[in-house]
Design a protein around this nucleic acid. Structure first.
Lengths: 249, 249
DNA sequence: CGCTGAGTTGAAGTATTTCAAAAGCTGTGG
DNA sequence: CCACAGCTTTTGAAATACTTCAACTCAGCG
C-alpha cells in the first residue's frame, strides 16, 4: 500500500508542515528526516484501522485523510480531516492502540515518524515542538466547534459550518470575495462528518444553493457567493474562527 | 473567586495527577510547584469564558469541572468534564484565546500553572511530560467516542455511553458487580453533554431504570445493575474502552 | 407552609431518517 | 459511438426520533 516517496517537491511539502521552522529556515537534517520517512498513499487506501497498533506520528505533506470511527451497525462518523500540514497522533490512552481509522480521500504523501524519532526531533527542534502544540490546539478547537453543532445545531448550521471550516482551512481566494475550492468528498462522506444522512445533506445544500449562498458543481467544487450569510448560518464570526482553528505562525 | 489553597492533602491530591511520577516518587520540588499554584474553586464558579485570554495549564486536583461552548441562541454544549488528575489546556490555535468556557460543578482545587512554568516542569520532569501526553491521548479518545455517538447514536446509546464513561473514569466498585457512583449533574447538564433535551434524558433514563439496567436516586446517585446490558446499549466493550480512555500508567 | 428547582409525564409539533425511484455522470467494453 | 454498469445526486412520501410546551409531583429549605 505504501510506496517510497521520491520527488523533487520534498522541501515544498515540508515547508507547509513547518511554516515557522525558525529563523534559520528548515535545516537539512530536519528535511532529511522527513524525507527518509515519507510514504505515498492512494485515494481509498486505509492506512490504519480502529484498534490497530500504531507506533508513529503522521505528518501530512500532501492530500486529504479522514479520521473516522464506526458503530457495530456499520454507521460511520468522520472525526476529523487531516490536510497538508496536519500532524496526526492516532494513539489512545494506552499509548499504542489507534482510536480511529485513517483513510485516504485523495492520493498524497505523509511522513510517518516513529514515536522515538518524533521525540528526538521535537527535542532537537523547539520550533517544531511549538508548532506541533499549536496544531494540536487548532485540532481541539475545531473539534469542539463541531461537537457543539453536532449536539445543538440544525442541519443547516452543521453543513454551513463544515463548508466554512473547509473554506478557512484551504484559505481559498479567487475572484475578490468569491472564495471557491474543491472538497474531495461525496455528500455521504460530508454527512458522516456532520452527523446527517446523505439525503439530508443534499436537501440542505440545495436549499443553500437556491438561497444564493453558494454554488456547487462537479462533485463538490464549491463557490461561496455570500460568505456573510454562510457565517451567519454557521453561527460564527469568520475572522475569529480563523484565529481559533488555524495555527497562528 | 479563587482562594489560596492551604491544606494537608496537597501531596495526596498531587499523587492523583502524577500516579507515575517516576521511581523516585514525587519530588519535593514538583510538589512545591503544584502547591504554590494551587487554587480552590466553588460549585458554580466560572473559571474562564469562551474567548477569554488564558495563560495557564490547569491540573485538576479535586472536584469536577465542565468545559463547554454555546451558540448565540443560548444553547449550551458540554465538550468534556475534567476530573481529578485531568490536565486542561484551554488555548485554541492562536495560543492565547480559550476555546471553551470552564465552570465548576463542585467545590474543588486545581493547580494553575502558567505556560512558562509548565514548559519548565515538563522539561525537568520527563515522567510528567509522558503522563501529560497519555492524559491528552485519553481526552482525544474519549471525545472521539462521544462524537461518534453524537453523530450516529440514538438517545439511548448516548446516555448509556455517558454513564459508562463516568463509571469507568470514577473507577467505582462497591458490592461485587454493582458499580455505583455519584455524578454532580442535573439531567439538563447531562443533556448538554450528550446533545439531548433534559426531557428526553429523563425519558431515556426512566426506560433504562424500568428495564432493570440501572437505578438512580437522590440526584444522580447511579447504581449499574446490569453492566453487560449497559455496555451493549452503549455499543462498547468496557475493558477495551477502559484501555482507550484511561491513561495507562 | 409556601417557595423553588429538579424530575416526570402526556400531547402536539418538528427535524431528520428511511425507503424508493428516477436522473445525471463516468468509465468500460463491444 | 453506443449500451451498460456503477455510483452520486436529487426528489417525494412515509416513518421515526426527538423537542417543545405545559402541567404536575416531589424534595429540600427558608
Amino acid at each position: 500500500m505504501f510506496a517510497e516517496y521520491h520527488s523533487s517537491e520534498k522541501s515544498a511539502a515540508l515547508s507547509r508542515v513547518l511554516p515557522a521552522a525558525g529563523p534559520r529556515g528548515i535545516s537539512q537534517t530536519l528535511q532529511d528526516t522527513f524525507a527518509r520517512h515519507a510514504v505515498t498513499f492512494r485515494d481509498g487506501n486505509t492506512l490504519i484501522l480502529e484498534g490497530d497498533e500504531c507506533e508513529s506520528i503522521y505528518c501530512v505533506l500532501d492530500g486529504w485523510l479522514a479520521l473516522s470511527k464506526s458503530l457495530d451497525e456499520g454507521q460511520n462518523q468522520i472525526i476529523d480531516f487531516a490536510l497538508p500540514g496536519d500532524i496526526i497522533d492516532p494513539a489512545s490512552a494506552d499509548g499504542v492502540t489507534s482510536s480511529v481509522m485513517i483513510e485516504a480521500l485523495t492520493d498524497g504523501t505523509l511522513a510517518a515518524l516513529p514515536y522515538r524519532n518524533w521525540e528526538r526531533l521535537t527535542k532537537d527542534w523547539p520550533e517544531l515542538a511549538r508548532m506541533s502544540h499549536l496544531i494540536e490546539a487548532a485540532k481541539r478547537a475545531r473539534r469542539a466547534e463541531r461537537m457543539l453543532r453536532l449536539g445543538k445545531g440544525t442541519a443547516e448550521m452543521r453543513v454551513a459550518y463544515a463548508l466554512l471550516e473547509f473554506c478557512i482551512r484551504l484559505d481559498s481566494v479567487c475572484e475578490p470575495d468569491i472564495p471557491s475550492f474543491h472538497v474531495p468528498l461525496t455528500q455521504q462522506q460530508l454527512g458522516d462528518y456532520v452527523g446527517l444522512s446523505s439525503v439530508h445533506v443534499c436537501r440542505t445544500m440545495r436549499r443553500l444553493t437556491r438561497n444564493g449562498v453558494l454554488e456547487s458543481s462537479d462533485h463538490m467544487d464549491i463557490r461561496i457567493l455570500d460568505s456573510q450569510a454562510l457565517a451567519r448560518l454557521a453561527g460564527v464570526d469568520s475572522e475569529r474562527l480563523k484565529r481559533e482553528i488555524i495555527p497562528q505562525i
